[in-house]
Amino acid sequence: MRAAVLPPLEDRGGPAQPLLTVGGLVKHFPVKGGVFGPRRAVQAVDGVDFSVLKGETLGVVGESGCGKSTTARLLVRLMAPDAGTVIFDGESVGDALSLRDYRRQVQMVFQDSYASLNPRLTIEDSIAFGPRVHGVAARAATGRAHDLLARVGLEPRRFAGRYPHELSGGQRQRVNIARALALEPRLVILDEAVSALDKSVEAQVLNLLLDLKRDFGLTYIFISHDLNVVRFMADRVMVMYLGRVAEIGARDAVFDAPAHPYTAALLASMPKADPAERRDAPPLSGDPPNPIDPPPGCRFNPRCAFVEDVCRRTDPPLAALVPQHSAACLMASSGSGHSRAPEIAA
């Protein structure tokens, strides 16, 4: 049974239902510690909770190795999580929603535009592959590939028959975006999707992404290490540190009034155009701790400017400061014992 089009995906839970709810997501990678060594694991993602609302862009920021990309790969199920639940539009993935149906609705764009296209396939074949896998007839799938190429700004008659090495980086990333959209997904995960592009091309691709989001009613998870880009794209921002969520909240709240000292340090590390605002000392020194052996208590305590004894003993929960803005810092949680913590409201 070869269909001409994919069956349409319907919104089940209504606009108030988050599109994606992630609870307690864990992924540890075992590392070999010698034959008699202790069993150890890199705690790449260690208990991550967040949700993504319908139609929003959730920006995810953090240093290299903080678990951003692992989280993305867990969400598209390129690897299985060790623990945790993923609920997509009210349905638990793997139970109520089969993996195959889930995959159609969640697609990903990778950072390396060259490695993410099969060098032996023409770009129309690369884009048509997904719909064909889901039962669309070859001709219809190719037609759809051409429509999508036109939609991402590549003239189908010029580009459809080309091979990836004949395109520029920006063109290839447009192809990757078209490929991700070929299955008509509802959620697109952009993992450093524009980081490898030069600035002028990056701006074009970002605008394309915003247009596509509006036209197709998409929801984005936008992962980047570039804070300016995240500020431009995101509605809400999640800051990750060492496999955990450090802070999550509305974009302006996080950028203007960061509640976690790590967020503050990240923001201070952004290059400033105004010479008066430039600073000599780095806001954050040292490397992040080894994720095999995270420090006890708060994971940020060895690098934190406000560290107190309690920070080395207590692992701070992700506490809400105001609705929709939470931070995993003892200074943000009342009655935590930190001298800067807010008073317990009587």
């Binding site: 390129l78 995959r103 490695a115 991700a180 299955l183």
Partner: peptide, 17 residues
């Protein structure tokens, strides 16, 4: 290990395909 294999897996294709 290349991303295009991951992309194909993410599309829900079977291993043989």
């Amino acid at each position: 290990k290349l991303d295009y294999i991951d992309a194909a897996r993410a599309s829900g294709a079977r291993p043989l395909t």
